[in-house]
Amino acid sequence: MSDPIIRFDNVTFGYSGTEVHALESISLEIQPGEYVAILGLNGAGKTTLGLCVNGVIPIMLGGNLEGTVTVDGLNVGDYPVREMAKIVGMVFDNPEFQMSQMSAGEEVALGLENAGIPYEEMKRIIPETLALVGLAGFEERSPLGLSGGQQQRLAIAAVLAMNPKILIMDEPTSNLDPIGKQEVFDMAAKLNRENGMTVLVIEHEVEVMAKYADRVIVMDGGRIVMNGTPQEIFGQVDALAELKLRVPESAEVASILKSRGMWNGPIPITTEPAIAAVNELLGAKS
């Protein structure tokens, strides 16, 4: 296995002004090309974990950071966020707060301009990136005149244009309708599979996590409490319920059937295996 692209070594962090630790002894390794989903209640430390990767913590948001975070061989905290931007692209949950330009084209261009990409290349990259997020032809539109979902995709495009090695999305689909959510996760999956981009998603949507993620990390009270494949994690319906977290509906149904002795197979976490399982069950009965 290659060197991890993100490595947390016993990281504890508390925001300044509070006694409570937002992160508590986090040790974590993420390999290049992994698609990792982070799950947890509000206040579990998910966003804080994400902010540690591109150096916003500890550089922009002060606090007490112990332990080391290493990203692509660099010790986070030694480099300004604008330098880390070349490696880590970060999309936040409120797209409107991330818009600063007069047109969508310029919004996407901002990062490229800062990186000193020549005009001719920008002219190629910008329409390509907008098309990738389903906003082809939106170059001249005002970002503030777009719908929430379009803004969200524009915020993602603005980060993707810089072609980062790591893409972190913090509740990227909170403003999107179900189809919009699907599109964002499909796009991230495509970037992950085709370009080998490492994707870190902070999400509440367990169904999509089960479908796309290679690995699910569950956080609670600033600690990592579960860490494994979607199958391993979402199979533990009771353990997640104790953390007040949902599991995919198919897993929930299967676990009820299991508790009543009607199902003994593995717990299906996505729709297709669930359908297969139901067919098998019905076939066995008739």
Binding site: L61, P80, R82, A85, G89, M90, Q98
Partner: peptide, 8 residues
């Protein structure tokens, strides 16, 4: 934060 994350 968003601007800085895009190399501003």
């Amino acid at each position: 934060i968003s601007l800085e994350s895009r190399g501003f």
